[in-house]
Design a protein around this nucleic acid. Sequence first.
DNA 1: CATGAATGAGTCTTCATTCAT
DNA 2: CATGAATGAAGACTCATTCAT
Lengths: 236, 236, 236, 236
Amino acid sequence: MKVTRTSTRSGTGSRRKSATGRPKGTSAGRKRSARVEVAPVQMKSERSRDQILQSAAQLFRRQGFSATTLRQIAARAKIKAGSIYYHFDSKEEILDEVLDRGLRHVFETVKNAVEQAGKVSHRRRIGLAIEAHLVALLETSDFTSANIRIYGQLPEHLKKPHRPLRRAYAEYWDQLFINARRAGEIRADMEVVPLRMFVIGALNWTIEWFRLENRDAVLELARRTETLIFEGVNKP
Amino acid sequence: MKVTRTSTRSGTGSRRKSATGRPKGTSAGRKRSARVEVAPVQMKSERSRDQILQSAAQLFRRQGFSATTLRQIAARAKIKAGSIYYHFDSKEEILDEVLDRGLRHVFETVKNAVEQAGKVSHRRRIGLAIEAHLVALLETSDFTSANIRIYGQLPEHLKKPHRPLRRAYAEYWDQLFINARRAGEIRADMEVVPLRMFVIGALNWTIEWFRLENRDAVLELARRTETLIFEGVNKP
Amino acid sequence: MKVTRTSTRSGTGSRRKSATGRPKGTSAGRKRSARVEVAPVQMKSERSRDQILQSAAQLFRRQGFSATTLRQIAARAKIKAGSIYYHFDSKEEILDEVLDRGLRHVFETVKNAVEQAGKVSHRRRIGLAIEAHLVALLETSDFTSANIRIYGQLPEHLKKPHRPLRRAYAEYWDQLFINARRAGEIRADMEVVPLRMFVIGALNWTIEWFRLENRDAVLELARRTETLIFEGVNKP
Amino acid sequence: MKVTRTSTRSGTGSRRKSATGRPKGTSAGRKRSARVEVAPVQMKSERSRDQILQSAAQLFRRQGFSATTLRQIAARAKIKAGSIYYHFDSKEEILDEVLDRGLRHVFETVKNAVEQAGKVSHRRRIGLAIEAHLVALLETSDFTSANIRIYGQLPEHLKKPHRPLRRAYAEYWDQLFINARRAGEIRADMEVVPLRMFVIGALNWTIEWFRLENRDAVLELARRTETLIFEGVNKP
DNA sequence: CATGAATGAGTCTTCATTCAT
DNA sequence: CATGAATGAAGACTCATTCAT
């Protein structure tokens, strides 16, 4: 499954100037389609670009956007600061792609998990979504954690382009809850929006403290969280 | 009740140079100890200092520490940037006090709420703590919300001095849960630390989306959250 | 006499951001009104600002806008590069004021010369205008010579704000010629616009080669030029 | 007629490093000597080289030397910036050849016009020179206009190599005037150097405003200018 | 011949900080 | 107490230049 782009934001490309002949943008699409068996011999440019994005994501996540220096990003990507501009037009453009990849990644991970489950209970579906969200956030993607962590402090103009996808993701969760409620697996009096806020909040805050140690730590956390969300802390 | 300072951090003063004769950093202590009958009128200095801190807290909360400039803080405090240095030795010192006040504020708010409750069920006590934490975070203190929001992205040396108090606050919550569990109001198999992370996480994440509109919005949110935490979403 | 500002461009101030509390802009007006006898104790800020503009004008004139570095300007003004930003928001703003002062200066000089002449022949009036233009250009103002020399190579957006004043100056000359022609002191078949271009061109090009040596060099040049323009090179 | 190189500057080649085997800088000589029957087809290299120079000239003329980037030049020449270095060792070398071609072009154009006139009055010869200069400047060569426009703002070391040719051109004009004066077609009291400055100035300044529209616009301008120079504006 | 990718020196600009007044 | 004016270090960004392919 692939997360379809929302209308407002046709890719990230729309905001690129690219007066130069440089290869800016486009990568996102290409990369995702790369099947492992084809091994599409990522060219040098592509590799550097990814290095930069990866480094940026890690640093943004740790220090925030404004505290992160292009020199830091460059150093981590093992190039010189000026070279970044061969691949991106500005620091903001890097941020833009980091955010985009990050949200797209959780969204796809969650969607995939739910879709592959086939015919299961709604609680199970939500449980899978919880697990997938946590995995994306804590295990598989610096982009996702960067996004979740820094988004709230960014100035308007940097947040704006990402709103549609964020909304879409929120609505995906809402739908999960609505279906569960309609099926009677969730109390009828539960309002969906605050519920989603509560759940996503509990999940997202884990970035603030969770440190990945062993393979199943995240799965364990997911299970625990699912239980709390469904059963609460009350003595049963 | 007053939150007592932990041993590691004897006030904020430990990091002050204060070669000049200026009153830097001493205010916190002084202010609180000010007897009402003796010095009812905050002197000008004190007022500016507070203005600066208040402005800083608001900006830190919104934009993060590094994206906030001293000129922005000064403008909001209706003074000029240079003047800040009469009251503080550095931007970091401002941060330091903002963080300190912020955590101290929730801590006191929560403690007060719980203590004033008198003899009530543990669930009720936890419910009051939840409410108090949310009130402090969303309604009464920019310091608290600033603290919660930016702490995670700060460099080590800025976080370090605040660890003891943070730990103390965490332990306070743990105790609430331990007591409840011991009393059988919470399942026996519930581990306290992950539980606290979950609860605090769900509460803290509200800064990311909650916008204070009417007076009871926070109380309403608190009630809802308490229910979710105790009963979960399951059909009863 | 004071050159009145054209409607399109109410001073230079219109394009100033000035989010900071710095004293940007406004100086132009203040300075001109300073009578010598009042000696309005130019404050430090004003002096630096003028130093910067003066330095910039000299360098722009010699090397062009883009080849001139803020560091060069600063060095010549005996300050550090960063300090420039206390007085101006950008290099372009400096340019802006240099251009403005430059044109305003010739315009005023020429207008004054002509107006103070009283009742004289049109040829005399034009002669005085020629002299005044050359004096402003070659002797009294680096701003004027900078303007004349670099204007043509500037990008559109930098030229645009100065068009109205330029047009006004051109029209002033046109009027001188029209009057002279009407009075029969200039051939009737002479078209005014190409004539003005020719005259102003011959005058302006002097910056490319004229080096001020002694006091009357410019006056001598002016006399010669006037003769050429009126009588041509033909044997009489 | 071919403008012979002056002694000081044996071609442009003197400043070339050319450690590589590349054909840098030799073109000028080669091209002109290319017999039509032998090498009618410019090779690819030659074509690119010319493209680069042509593009550079246009941009230099419009924006000045320092404001023009190699990438702009490359783009206009439909190649990539790096490729320029196959043809030139540096941006300055391009400038060097642009300047050289530019002056050489006017010089040849003027000389040819005058020489081909055969036995005519001196005024006619000067008239032809005026026309030829304007044609070269405004119609036939971006190199010439680039040269005229930017030369004055270049740093010493870039101007120096072109002085001899400039001087030669100036002397050529001086000779035209001297001959005319000797023949009594110009007043005896007219000093030649200021006269030449005046005339050349009036001609050169046209780049600042003249926009080529129809075929004879330049010729019309030339006629007008000639009249002004010889007869002045006086009522005859 | 040409390009893709990178580099380093330098540019404009920002900002915490200083200090005389 | 507060400000005006300045500074220096650093940040984002540009650009001529290099060089392997």
